[in-house]
Simulated assay, not measured.
Amino acid sequence: MSAPLYQLKAEFFKTLGHPVRIRVLELLSVREHAVAELLPVVGVEAASLSQQLAVLRKANLVISRREGVNVYYRLTSDEVAQLLRVARSILSGVLEGQAELLADLRATSPKY
């Protein structure tokens, strides 16, 4: 018997639950990148980046191809980029709401 859909979704979001993986997906949302291009932008050691790329490959979010000595990565689907855009939009709304709350709090704080 296969896992329930909610469990699969939870595993999917766990895969996205690492800042390096999110940054890599954001970069790959723009275009394909060689690992050597990702390293200075992501700012982690090569072994760490390799590990995170392996997690993304295992989750079928990215695919790789070799060209000479370079390995290039790209997203498996434009829907991954769309998901990141939706997440950004949701976070923008949350942060705007928090900014409004902070402004209200400051405006109504008692003067001691």
Rank of each mutant, 00 (worst) to 15 (best):
F12T: 09
F12L: 15
F13W: 14
F13H: 12
K14L: 15
K14P: 03
T15K: 03
L16A: 09
L16Y: 07
G17A: 15
G17F: 10
H18N: 15
H18L: 11
V20C: 04
I22N: 02
I22A: 09
I22S: 02
R23Y: 07
R23I: 09
R23S: 15
R23C: 10
L25K: 00
L27K: 11
V30A: 08
E32N: 05
E32W: 01
H33Q: 11
A34S: 12
A34H: 01
A34L: 05
A34K: 05
V35E: 06
V35A: 09
A36V: 15
L38E: 02
L39W: 01
G43A: 08
V44K: 00
A46P: 05
A46T: 13
A47Q: 14
L49A: 04
L49S: 03
Q52W: 00
A54V: 10
A54C: 07
L56K: 05
L56Y: 04
K58F: 10
K58T: 14
K58V: 11
A59C: 08
L61K: 00
V62T: 09
R66V: 14
V69P: 04
N70C: 06
V71W: 00
V71Q: 05
Y72K: 10
R74M: 15
L75K: 07
T76H: 06
D78R: 14
D78V: 13
E79A: 13
A81K: 10
Q82E: 13
Q82N: 11
L83Q: 08
R85H: 02
R85C: 01
V86Q: 10
V86S: 08
V86W: 05
S89E: 14
I90A: 10
S92F: 06
S92R: 14
G93W: 03
V94Q: 08
V94H: 10
L95Y: 08
L95W: 07
E96N: 12
E96Q: 12
E96C: 01
Q98K: 14
E100S: 09
L101W: 06
L102Y: 13
L102Q: 12
